[in-house]
């Protein structure tokens, strides 16, 4: 055929075919998407520190292991309260003249998703220790240690942010671990990562592919939840699997008067609303509220904590916890 033997016609056709399809499936949808999506009313722009932190996040390729997208499937529920929307990314523009837009959605979840990590793990102390060497707080972690974002000083100045790192992780060096500006910027960025609430009255789209157990409903309610699993997912990164916490950063639950005592209002209040009263320890975020724990789940966690590591307190029931949760909700800081 003449067409196949004429290189100009052949290659021009192939190119136009490909270019046409490219316009249809890539360029037009992209243009359309950036034109028709605006940030949510509640969205706050990144602070100056967080912007610098985001640049450090980009430079170190954190996106290789951490996604920032909550998919509309049930298994992603643990990463955010609602599926991600195009509006969530609408305010992200070109970084600078050299570098492209960084939505940082990622394609691999070797580590946890970070869309809502500002709500899930807002503790600055935890984040700093974790960044210095993740294995300090999460023994099984395989995340790189970013110890080069810290300096070790014999006599830190007053303004220095000191990080409480156990001696075993100092590689024999002596002195105090001080966070550099870069480390603080990065933490500022991580703390700024929060899912924006939808404007009042707008229902979030549903998570698909619900787990069978949940749809089963009535039968699931009578079954007791696994407190160990819930503890691992929500509490262990600070209070550790042995319940001993981390001296100087996170208090122990083993032998704790709050855990073993009868003042359940204080206990549940700390889980649901956070706590900052104790000198020598970091601030505890409102873990229960952030993770939207149900009364059954809180009960399971309480019973796990009250019966492990030598703790031996009375079992609590879901009914009493439900009442207390309704009560402490009123005390929540607005």
């Amino acid at each position: 055929m003449e067409f196949f033997n004429n290189h100009k016609k052949l290659f021009r056709t192939a190119f136009l075919f490909f270019a046409g399809l490219t316009i249809l499936v890539a360029i037009l949808p992209a243009l359309n998407n950036q034109k028709n999506n605006k940030p949510l009313p509640g969205a706050e722009p990144l602070s100056a520190d967080a912007v610098k932190g985001k640049n450090i996040y980009i430079a170190n390729g954190c996106v290789a292991c951490h996604t920032q997208q909550v998919r509309n499937v049930d298994m992603d529920k643990m990463w955010g309260s609602r599926p991600g929307l195009a509006a969530d990314y609408a305010d992200i523009h070109r970084t600078d003249i050299w570098r492209n837009t960084a939505t940082l959605m990622g394609t691999e979840r070797t580590g946890p998703d970070l869309t809502d990590v500002g709500n899930r793990q807002p503790s600055k102390d935890w984040n700093l220790v974790h960044l210095f060497n993740p294995r300090t707080v999460v023994k099984e972690s395989i995340m790189p240690a970013y110890s080069w974002l810290f300096t070790i000083k014999k006599q830190p100045a007053k303004s220095d942010v000191i990080v409480n790192v156990p001696v075993a992780y100092l590689n024999g060096e002596e002195g105090k671990v001080v966070a550099t500006k870069d480390a603080l910027y990065l933490i500022a960025y991580l703390q700024s990562l929060k899912q924006v609430k939808l404007p009042d009255g707008t229902p979030a789209s549903d998570f698909l592919y619900k787990r069978q157990q949940e749809t089963a409903g009535a039968t699931g309610a009578t079954k007791e939840l696994n407190g160990t699993t819930l503890y691992t997912a929500n509490c262990q990164s600070c209070h550790q699997s042995n319940g001993e916490g981390l001296p100087g950063a996170f208090p122990p639950l083993k032998g704790s008067p709050v855990v073993n005592g009868d003042n359940l209002e204080l206990y549940v209040g700390i889980i649901m609303n956070g706590y900052s009263g104790r000198p020598g320890f970091g601030v505890m975020p409102p873990v229960g509220t952030n993770a939207s724990l149900s009364s059954a789940e809180v009960t399971a966690i309480l019973n796990h904590e009250r019966s492990t590591w030598g703790n031996n307190a009375k079992k609590v029931t879901e009914e009493e916890i439900k009442k207390i949760m309704d009560f402490v909700k009123l005390q929540a800081p607005k």
């Binding site: 290659f11 192939a14 190119f15 490909f18 270019a19 490219t22 890539a26 360029i27 949808p29 992209a30 243009l31 998407n33 950036q34 999506n37 195009a86 990314y89 609408a90 305010d91 992200i92 523009h93 070109r94 492209n100 837009t101 960084a102 939505t103 959605m105």
Partner: peptide
């Protein structure tokens, strides 16, 4: 064709006009 297409995708991937927000992800 492979060389023509590689050039096309590189241009599409690096031209900033259509890369705001999720535009970047689609590209």
């Amino acid at each position: 064709s492979a060389i023509m297409f590689a050039l096309t995708i590189t241009v599409v991937a690096y031209v900033p006009i259509w890369q705001d927000g999720l535009g970047e992800t689609i590209i």
